[in-house]
Structure formats: structure tokens, C-alpha cells
Design a protein around this nucleic acid. Sequence first.
DNA 1: AACAGTTTTTTAAACGACCATTCAAGATTC
DNA 2: GAATCTTGAATGGTCGTTTAAAAAACTGTT
Lengths: 191, 191
Amino acid sequence: MSRKRIRDIRNEELIEATIVAVHKRGYGVVTMAEIAREAGASAASINYYFGSKEGLMEATMLHLLGKLRRAMSEGYATARTPRERLYAVMDANFADGLFTVPQCSIWMQFWANAPYSTRLSRLHRINRARVRSHFLAELRALLPADRVETARQALQCYMDGVWLQAAQSEEALDPDEARAAAHRVVDLVIP
Amino acid sequence: MSRKRIRDIRNEELIEATIVAVHKRGYGVVTMAEIAREAGASAASINYYFGSKEGLMEATMLHLLGKLRRAMSEGYATARTPRERLYAVMDANFADGLFTVPQCSIWMQFWANAPYSTRLSRLHRINRARVRSHFLAELRALLPADRVETARQALQCYMDGVWLQAAQSEEALDPDEARAAAHRVVDLVIP
DNA sequence: AACAGTTTTTTAAACGACCATTCAAGATTC
DNA sequence: GAATCTTGAATGGTCGTTTAAAAAACTGTT
């Protein structure tokens, strides 16, 4: 039990260090040594835990996807109407613990690199399909059928676009404001 | 004059090869040798023309930005009403010669890497500001002042989001359909 | 509490591969 | 014959991964 715990703690620490290091230096050029320094460990120990650099990156992506999935489940649990659930999908993407520059940044990097890794692109496709089906389910209850698809594209692309911009930001983000803006966009699309 | 011509031809060829090679292999991992092979030249000759890998990448980005700027100017020239000009901004982003998988892909890669290069991020900021001011100018003529900013965010982020998705596509893109979808989104936001 | 044996964790150093860039010599164009 | 262009080979450096050995953590026994 205690043995298991150590492994989990190290995993978490190394993944957090990966997020920070990738944000600081960029996915393409960050080195194992830099990630290790960020975590106060050695490059060799990262390989001990994750097998390879690619394994570390995949684990980091899984970690972020899990965070996003949990944030969305929580929101869904309390939302009662289709519109509230639509807000909830948005809010999950702009949740306090998720909508930070380093995380938007690393998400962008993964996104850009997903086409070159079958494992990453698989994770990516699954996540996108889930968001998509959530949007469709709620929009069908709010709009006539012939306007659902356009609204879905508008909202889903909006979310992606906000993250894309956020990754470029030089100041800290304001999740509250982001959620408020997202609600305004929802209200614009579905009066 | 003829000497000048050769240099221009080579520049163009090498930049096109760069776009294809970066699309195939990824910005972070593509090598000079791969770009050279794509162009049917040697890695050394790329350095002869562009000085360094970073110089080549910057020139490629400038090339793409120029394309986008020209596409937008053309559209603006014929558009007569604010709504038509709004369509024109969208159409420029989804123009036939621009909205292809390799170009969306490389754009994404540059985007992801812009924060780590002062030169790239500068180009990026300038382009974004120009698109933004175009949007604002037209939207102010179409909407009450208190709804302009929300509409601008919705449309600009939508554009970014579409590119982001397009970069992941495994099939060829359909610029016609993309423009039609963009028009529908404009109509959704500005009834 | 102390100790010896076992397992898990850590890292310094070595390895091997890869890559951007330079350079000098040759090819091409004017 | 001079200027421009091209490239094979050499250079110098970087990085991911492996390895072997040490350190630390744990276990059961006395």
C-alpha cells in the first residue's frame, strides 16, 4: 500500500513538472533534463517511472483529459435544464483548475502534435467526440433540427478558439470572466 | 535581374517544401535534410538562402501571412455592405489556396510555437490585431454597441477553432463548404 | 529496538544516434 | 574568367536511453 503510494506521488509530481516545463520551453524542444530539474529529480528516474519521453507525454495528456472529464461530470450533476447543461460544458472547459496559461499552452502543443502520434491522436479524437455529443444532445432540445449543427460548430469552435488564444496570453487568465463570456456567446447563439 | 529571379524561385520552392515537410513530420521534429529532400535540394543550400533553420521558418510564416493578407484585401475590394465585408473576412481565411490541411497544420504548429520565438509572436500579434479591427469595424455597423464585443469574440474564436480542427483532418478539406458554414455562423450571430 | 536481507528507488556516467551548421571544392551561369 | 549556386563531408554539440551501482525504504526476526 505504502509502496503504491510512492509511485502515485512521483507520477503526479513528474506530470506537474512536465506541464510547467513544456509551458516554459515548448513541447518540441523541452528536454528530459529540464523536466527533471523542474521536478527536482534526474532524467533517469523519469524513465524509471514512465519508460520513455513519449510515455511521459501520453501520461500527462491522460492526466489533463481526466481533469477535464471530471470537471464536466461535476457540472452535469447539478445542471437541470438543457441550457444549464450547455453552460456546464462551457464551464468545465474554463474551470478554475483547468483554464490556466500553462495548461492551455500544453493543450495546444499536444493538439498540434497529435497528428504525429497515433496514441495522442486517439485520446484526442475520443475527447472531441464526447464534447460533441454533449453539445448535440442539449442543442437538440433547444433549437429546430436544421439549426443544431451550425450552432454546435459555432460553440465547439468557439471553445477551441478561446483556448488557442489563452495559450498565447502573457498574463494570468481570468476563469470567471471566461465563463461569463462563454455564457454570453451561448445566449447569442440560442436567444 | 535574372540573378534576382533565381533567388526568388528557390525561395518559393524551399518554402513550399517546408510547408509540406512540416505538415508531414511536425514542426518540432522535422529536419533540414527532410525539407531538403522534399525540395530536391541539399540541406546546405537551404542555409545558403535562409541562413538558418529559424530563418527558413520565419520566412515561411511571412509567406503564409502575406497570402492571408492578400486574400483579405481582395475580398474587401468587392464587398459593399458591412455584412458582405464580414463574409469577406471569413472567406479570406477559408480561401481555396489557403484552407488546405498542410497549411492549416503548419499554421497550428507556428501558433503553438509562437510564444517561444519573439519574432514569430510579433508576426502573430500583428495579424491577430488586424483581423480583430476588421471584425470590430463591421460589427459596429450591424449591432448595438453592447453586443459588439461578444459577437467579435464568437466569430474570431470560431475562425481559430475551425483551423484548429482542420489541421487534424485526415481527408482533404472543402473550402466551399467551410465558407458556407462560416456564413451560416455569421447569420446565426447577426440575424 | 536493532539488525540483516530483500525490494524499490535514485542517479552519475557512458552510449549511441541524430542534427544544424560550416567549409572547401566543384558545377553552373553570366 | 568572375560571380553565383550547390553539395558531400566534416564538425561540434545535444539529447534520450541504458546500465550498474549506490541509497533508501521496507520486512520479518530476534
